[in-house]
Design a protein around this nucleic acid. Structure first.
Length: 430
RNA sequence: GUGGCCGUAGCUCAUCAGGUAGAGCACCGGAUUGUGGCUCCGGAGGUGGCGGGUUCGAGACCCGUCGGCCACCCCA
C-alpha cells in the first residue's frame, strides 16, 4: 500500500483530542489574561540565522534538530524550533520594547528528533515572555502564573518545581573553567557522552543521566559557589517571594538549560508520570538576548510549556474534561416538503438560540435510522417533521434523555410556539 | 544517529504442526405501517505493512525494507 501518510513525528489531532486541547487552550487564555499578558503571533518560519544567534551554534537544537531549507532565492530558512527567538525578534522589529511588555503565544514548533512518548517533531508550545523588568519579582510572577495553571487543570499534585540560578555570563564562564579542570582529572571515569560534552557544552554534564557521572559530580566544584553577588541576592529574593506565595520548589543546583541565552533564574516543572520526558514546562531569565539580536538591552524572563505533554499529564491524572455531546437538538424530517420546513425552522432556531447546537439530519434514510442518529448524537431533544406535522403546521418534540422523559416524552407543538416551548424545556435541567 | 519491542478488518485483539483468516466494539440493514436507547437476526469491510527467500504450500520460518511504540541523545 502506498497510501500517503503523515510525516513521522507529525500527528493529526483528531476530534476527540481537539476538545481536550480546546479546554486547555481556554484555561491558558484566561490565565494569561488574568496576569495582563497580551497575545502575539509570529511566523512559523524565520531566517536560520535568528536561531543560530539566539539558541547557540553548538547546541543540539541548532546542530542537528532544525528543519532548515533554502527558499527559492537561496536564503536559508528554518521552521521555528522554539518560540522565544521569534518573539524577541518580533518585539524588537515592531518597537514593542520601549516599555515593559508581557507577551504570550501558542503554536507549533519543529524539531527533527526521534519521536517518543511526549515528544513529536511537530509539537506545540505555549510561551510566556515578560520584557523590561530585571528584578526577581518578575521571575516570581511567571512562576506563580505557571503554578496557577497546574492548580486550574488539577495536576498540581503531580508536578514539582525545580529551581536554580546559573548566574551571570562571567560567573558561568569562571565556573565552566573550574568544572572542566576538575573533570579533566577524571576524564577516564566519564561516560562517552559526557566526554564529548566536555568539549562542546561542559555545563550539560551536570544533568547527565549517567549515575557514575553523577557520582563523580559530587566532588566537583558547585555552580552556586561561583555565582556573582547580584545573581545570588536575586535568587534569594525570588525564593522569598515564592515562599510568601506558598509555591513549593526544589532547589536543583545541577539544573542547567539547553539553550545558550539563559542567565540567572532557570526553572523546570517536572513530573514522574510521563516516562522519560518529564519536563512539562521550563524557562528562565535571558537578560542578554534582546541586545544579542540587535535590540537595545532589555532584560526578560519567560517559559514555554509543551501542550502534548500537558495533555498527556491530564490523561495520566484522570483530569480530562468531560466530553460534550455533539448536538443539543437533532432535527429529523421525512419527505421533501417536510425537509424544507425543517431546514427553515432550524435556521430560525439558530437565530433565536445563540450557541445552541442544532444538527440537521441530512442524507435521507428511514425514520428509524434517523432516530438512531438522533440518539447517537447525544442530543437532548429531537424535532420531528413528517407529512402529518407539515399538514397540521406543527412539529413533534421528543425528549431523548431519560431525565426528560418523565415529562411528556413527546409532544406536538404548533410551529409558532416552538421557540417558547423549547426555551422553557431548556431552562430545566442543567 | 543508536538500541529494544511490535506491525492481521475503522478500533482492540485472536487463530494455526506452516495448508490460502476470525471475535468483540464501531458501521449499514432488518425484527408491524412515522420514532432512538436494550435484545435478536443479517450485511459490508482484510492482496495479514511492503519486497524477497525457504517450502508442494507462509500471515505464520529467514532476510531486507518501511512504519509504529518505548528508551538513549536532547528537550517542551
Amino acid at each position: 500500500m502506498s497510501n500517503i501518510r503523515a510525516i513521522r513525528g507529525m500527528n493529526d489531532l483528531l476530534p476527540d483530542e481537539t476538545t481536550i486541547w480546546q479546554s486547555v487552550e481556554t484555561a491558558v487564555r484566561e490565565l494569561v489574561a488574568s496576569y495582563g499578558y497580551a497575545e502575539i503571533r509570529m511566523p512559523i518560519v524565520e531566517h536560520t540565522e535568528l536561531f543560530k544567534r539566539s539558541i547557540g551554534e553548538v547546541t543540539d537544537i541548532v546542530e542537528k534538530e532544525m528543519y532548515t531549507f533554502d527558499d527559492r532565492n537561496g536564503e536559508s530558512m528554518t521552521l521555528r524550533p522554539e518560540g522565544t527567538a521569534g518573539c524577541v525578534r518580533a518585539a524588537i522589529q515592531n518597537g514593542l520594547l520601549t516599555t515593559s511588555r508581557r507577551l504570550w503565544y501558542a503554536g507549533p514548533m519543529f524539531r527533527y528528533e526521534r519521536p517518543q512518548k511526549g515528544r513529536q517533531r511537530q509539537f506545540h508550545q505555549v510561551g510566556v515572555e515578560a520584557f523590561g523588568v530585571a528584578t526577581p519579582d518578575m521571575d516570581a510572577e511567571v512562576i506563580l502564573l505557571s503554578a496557577r495553571l497546574w492548580r486550574q487543570l488539577g495536576v498540581a499534585d503531580s508536578v514539582e518545581l525545580q529551581l536554580n540560578s546559573i548566574g551571570s555570563l562571567e560567573a558561568r564562564a569562571a565556573y565552566r573553567d573550574a568544572l572542566v579542570a576538575y573533570l579533566q582529572q577524571h576524564h577516564e571515569a566519564l561516560d562517552e557522552d559526557s566526554q564529548r560534552r566536555l568539549q562542546s557544552n561542559p555545563l550539560r554534564i551536570l544533568d547527565s543521566k549517567n549515575p557514575e557521572t553523577q557520582a563523580l559530580l559530587n566532588g566537583a566544584p558547585a555552580l552556586g559557589d561561583y555565582l556573582d553577588e547580584e545573581s545570588r541576592s536575586d535568587y534569594a529574593r525570588l525564593k522569598e517571594l515564592l515562599d510568601a506565595a506558598g509555591v513549593a520548589y526544589t532547589e536543583n543546583p545541577r539544573l542547567v538549560r539547553g539553550l545558550d541565552y539563559y542567565n540567572k533564574t532557570v526553572f523546570e516543572w517536572v513530573t514522574d508520570r510521563l516516562g522519560a520526558q518529564g519536563t512539562v514546562c521550563a524557562g528562565g531569565r535571558y537578560d542578554g538576548l534582546v541586545a544579542q539580536l540587535g535590540g537595545k538591552p532589555v532584560p526578560a524572563i519567560g517559559f514555554a510549556m509543551g501542550m502534548e505533554r500537558l495533555v498527556l499529564l491530564l490523561e495520566a491524572c484522570d483530569r480530562l474534561p468531560l466530553t460534550e455531546p455533539e448536538a443539543d437538538i437533532y432535527v429529523v424530517s421525512f419527505g421533501a416538503p417536510a425537509q424544507r420546513v425543517a431546514m427553515a425552522a432550524s435556521e430560525r432556531l439558530r437565530d433565536t438560540f445563540a450557541g445552541l447546537r442544532i444538527v440537521q439530519h441530512n442524507g435521507g434514510g428511514s425514520f428509524k435510522s434517523q432516530m438512531k442518529k438522533a440518539d447517537k448524537s447525544g442530543a437532548r431533544f429531537a424535532l420531528i417533521w413528517g407529512e402529518d406535522e407539515v399538514a397540521a403546521g406543527t412539529v413533534t418534540l421528543k425528549a431523548l434523555r431519560s431525565e426528560d422523559e418523565q415529562q411528556p416524552a413527546q409532544q406536538s407543538v404548533a410551529s409558532e410556539a416552538l421557540a417558547d416551548t423549547l426555551r422553557a424545556l431548556l431552562a430545566t435541567g442543567n
